[in-house]
């Protein structure tokens, strides 16, 4: 695969874009008792992958395919009713933008950063970063889909003192579905913006607002 090393770099949890500070809903799910072991973590990640993950991956694929990033940011807003999740997405978008402009500089990233200094939804920036790195829509979708499961799984290790081997085994069991979601998102990313997937998860929306009100928490979201 062309660009495999660039994809590994972009999807690496050590890529300095601040994602490690976010549990992607896992912290609230652990507190509510809905995630308490490897099996419930797997169902959480599976649900996230096929809802928010699919939607994010399709936005990333569409940005990588060259769709107008501002139209995609608007589409992302319409797909994100929770203001807490919109704030988080833009904050992560700003952080990723800084990292991406340093690692794969390009005029499209510069233009978007200038047009939206307050930040753009993270999946849109991820797609544009992939494009700047010479990657295509499928690779952008793969990075986004993987991020949507690896983030909560990594967080769960800290939140539950879960054995890291078990958390990694969850991700391994999800690889066929992660690939499938990325494939569907990659295909959808080449179509019209209004037809992009809008899969959503009620509990992720509800608990994101609850989590934002907690005075003490381990993760930012």
């Amino acid at each position: 695969m062309a660009g495999a090393a660039a994809l590994l770099l972009l999807a690496d949890g050590r890529f300095p874009a601040g994602g490690h500070a976010h549990s992607q809903g896992a912290e609230a799910a652990v507190k509510a008792g809905r995630v308490h072991d490897a099996a419930t973590l797997e169902e959480f990640c599976r649900g996230r992958l096929h809802t928010a993950g699919l939607t994010a991956a399709a936005l990333a694929a569409a940005a990588a395919a060259g769709h107008d990033p501002l139209a995609l940011d608007e589409a992302a807003d319409a797909r994100t009713p929770s203001p807490a999740l919109r704030r988080t997405a833009r904050k992560l978008g700003r952080q990723l933008m800084r990292a991406a402009r340093a690692t794969w500089p390009g005029p499209e990233l510069d233009e978007l950063a200038a047009a939206r200094p307050q930040g753009v939804h993270q999946p849109v920036v991820l797609g544009l970063a992939a494009r700047s790195a010479g990657l295509g829509p499928l690779e952008a979708a793969q990075a986004a889909a993987y991020d949507n499961v690896s983030g909560p799984a990594t967080a769960a290790v800290r939140l539950l003192s879960l054995d890291p081997f078990h958390a990694t085994a969850v991700l391994a069991r999800l690889t066929p579905e992660t690939d499938e979601v990325a494939r569907r998102a990659g295909t959808a990313g080449s179509g019209a913006v209004e037809d992009l997937p809008a899969a959503s998860a009620p509990l992720l929306e509800i608990t994101a607002e609850q989590h934002a009100t907690w005075p003490v928490r381990l993760f930012a979201s």
Binding site: A29, F44, G47, A78, A199, L203
Partner: peptide, 30 residues
């Protein structure tokens, strides 16, 4: 899907029941 003045305002899709992966887990309906 709701559009206002031709622009997207809200776009949400829910998928539940047998064959919808993860629908009853802690991220979706719990």
């Amino acid at each position: 899907s709701v559009r206002r003045g031709g622009r997207p305002l809200l776009d949400q899709q829910l998928d539940f029941g047998p064959g919808a992966p993860g629908w009853d887990g802690g991220a979706v309906l719990g």
